[in-house]
Amino acid sequence: MPRKPVEPSTPEQNAFVERAIEQYGKATYNFAYRLTGNEADARDLTQDAFIRVYRAWRSFQPGTSFLSWIYRIVTNLHRDELRRRKGRFQEEIPEDNAPQEFGGQKPLAVHPIDDYVERQLSEPLSRALRRLSSEQRQVIILADIEEYSYQEIADIMGCSIGTVRSRLHRARALLRRLVLQEQERPQQTR
């Protein structure tokens, strides 16, 4: 991969990246985790994103949202990765939170936090989120979890507001249908 900076790294540049990791590393990692659905890919995506920040640090405009900027970097990197893997992102790498088999037996010790996260992931909304397309999941995360405006989402995703709107409408329709199905299930069994 060709490298952009021609000038050597400066202490100022390193300090910029270190401060960015300190302030926004966790948010970036969680955003990457929600996009990819597994910790291994989220780690790679977060690292690559901060390397991009290091390379392009001069293009960041002070006064604008750093988080929006790095979310845009993460979104683009994730899209590139999906294209590279030809849409086999989930199939190639098992999810970290998927139940692991050890010779047909469950692991002897289950960490209570892992158990809690697993239970959370088994929620219908988590399942529904994973059934969305990558773009639909991105727009749900940005609109409903990060609570960005349509314009900000369009800037992050590099598309029009109309596209954001239609993706959000379709994604919400699917989520609504799945949630209603879950709500109806206990009533049918009664």
């Binding site: 990692y29 959370q120 929620e123 909304l125 989120l129 409903d144």
Partner: peptide
């Protein structure tokens, strides 16, 4: 529910991530 779930699932930055990037 999406926000509450995201909050509940929130992960800390993995140990060594900052060092690996630097």
């Amino acid at each position: 529910r999406l926000r509450a779930q995201a909050k509940a699932e929130e992960l800390d930055l993995p140990l060594g991530m900052r060092e690996a990037i630097m």
